[in-house]
Design a protein around this nucleic acid. Structure first.
Lengths: 210, 210, 210, 210
DNA sequence: TATGAATGAGTTTTCATTCAT
DNA sequence: AATGAATGAAAACTCATTCAT
């Protein structure tokens, strides 16, 4: 995200950004296996250009993940800084999920992607930053008495991961509503006071590998 | 599930079943794009045999979905019949999720699958049967006072769909625990009495298209 | 050469042989980089067929080298067995060079091929067999007093390697004659006493195109 | 070598020379197919600059061949002028083979190169000059009684061509020795009476890796 | 009928060459 | 004039599907 893109000529830089943007869109709808040529076309460049910038599919996925993670971390930090309560920050993070959705989509695909993030130092660092923010939010929300205390960051991110998955419904409007309601319901389940104790022990971020 | 498989010689029938079984296994781990030859090999037959029975990949997916749906419906009915309360039936359905997981995996894959079910009369019928059972369970659980009344079958199946998605965690043990805890937490959210009212209106089965 | 090709259906076997034959021809004239599709076309099959039998270019090269080495070893043994003197056997080996030429061509190419032979057990074994025969021929020829005694098998095979290289001359007839004369001259150099007349006529610069 | 390079600004001229030098190095190790960008990088210029100077690969090869031929001719003339006997001049030419080796490498490559020289007037002229010198050397050596009289320049250059080919041996030291011994042996074959001892020691099969 | 061979279209990737900066 | 970005055609390889045995 830094050395990699600095010092490009203006037009090259623009192309690079268009490629990443196109990749994000296609990855979001089709997963990480979309034909490279499709992405190139969507970016308005030839395949060759794509390959000059990203030597192979992995490199492109890596770039997309980095960018999405960067944005996600920033969004989470903003939520924590701006919302009056940690609980509200939690809710906001959960709703600001466009980028997260993409990351989950990519890192969840059967074939290639989990490893890509694991093996990339920059991604790993971003991942750590993300965990840190989440930890803060979760523990603060518990300190507020808003979040049940038998969960930990791992549980919360697990639930995020599930909620964030693409919901393949015919019309986007219903899909949106469904997502809203599921989110609300899960938040309800996360609220303090509630019901039955959860099985096992709170899962930490380390437990779930995020 | 009927005309299609009746009147086959015993060995042909056995082949067919092995193919479907192999497909279920591969689809479960790799999604609907596994090489046909992989499936054939796992079934212990040649590709030719596979294609004699299932003219193309769609036909095979359709057969798998039908079989899984059939089992799922039966399981759901059994739960309703055998559990003392509708709530417990609901919980059991949610936990007996192996077949459901496969269906979700197949019908949410980007490329081919949603349509397959839509366009197949037998699957549609099974789907309707499934909805009927779920409707019964849901409304009975609400009548019992166990399930919150601002949800409907669509919400419930939506949540099922989410929970049932494969959770890509390193070790299977933690994955299982995570799944358990998420399920418990969602069930908590579904319990009557609870928290904040959900946005919008209860989603029916028709709303979510299952 | 054995397990690999046994038990193929008659037609498959025929195809396999045609592919190897086509590869030998193309490799001989163009080196190991000929487009796979060219080879497939020459063999009268689709690329797919070629790749079914030989998973990648290396596998094909390996098969060709094995076959050529096998033939070369057999030829060398036949020469040793049938010629009245070891010297004559040496001469015959040096002239029966079609297969050897191919091997040299392949194992000499800059890019890929040397390693292929090194890493292949069957090829290595054949190579050892070849060396053994050559050792026998060389030492017997020295014992006869025909071959100078300040050389050994390495020198001889080095000279073979050089002589066997493709001579890119316009017309094949002159090329053949040139090869003959070079061979004769080198044999002269290898003789214990030296001095036989060369066949044909002196070749002018124009004859050989340099 | 003349019109083409005259009238270039000093820095342009320097670029051109660096490109040719880089090309010579790469061609010598990888043959005429090295990626143009590799050559440009080695020359410390962009591809664009390379293409400004040499419209396509052929033009570059042509330039390299011209330069090497020019040097070779000069070397051969120097040998003839400076050595006490024509035979010694012949030997020296055969040993001063770096440039010759490159020419042979380029002009014997399968794909493009033979024609390039044929179709280039300047190269053809150099070729003729080369032949003339060789003719002189050869005939003078025969007049001296040193070179056998049943060969002519074509035979000699054929032998040069063979000896000059890259010898793919593991370590460069052995390769050098092998080349020396082969050269000596061929010279022996070329001698009017024959019979000098070879340098070094007999090479075993293991020595040369075949 | 079962088998596995053959086909060929679809994808990824590379690189010579052209062109904008 | 120099640079390096963009292009697109070519080559390797995979796999769904058809067909001969």
């Amino acid at each position: 995200m830094t050395a990699e893109v600095t010092g490009l000529r203006a037009d090259a830089r623009r192309n690079r950004d268009q490629i990443v943007a196109a990749a994000k869109q296609w990855f979001a709808v089709q997963g990480p296996d979309v034909p490279m040529e499709e992405i190139a076309r969507a970016a308005g460049v030839g395949v060759g250009t794509l390959y000059r910038r990203f030597p192979d599919r992995e490199a492109l996925i890596r770039a997309v993940v980095r960018e999405s993670l960067t944005i996600s971390v920033a969004e989470a930090r903003a939520a924590l800084a701006e919302e009056p309560t940690a609980w509200q920050a939690l809710v906001r993070v959960l709703r600001q999920s466009r980028e997260l959705r993409l990351i989950v989509r990519l890192t969840t695909a059967a074939q290639p992607a989990k490893t890509i993030v694991k093996d990339d130092e920059e991604s790993s660092e971003l991942r750590r930053a993300m965990i840190e923010v989440l930890d803060n939010v979760v523990h603060a929300a518990q300190a507020e008495g808003a979040l049940r205390t038998d969960v930990d960051t791992g549980d919360v991110s697990m639930l995020f991961t599930l909620l964030v998955r693409p919901v393949p419904l015919q019309d986007e409007e219903t899909a949106e509503l469904a997502r809203e309601r599921c989110t609300a319901l899960v938040l309800d389940g996360l609220r303090a006071h509630t019901g039955t104790p959860l099985p096992g022990r709170p899962l930490t971020a380390a437990d779930v590998g995020l």
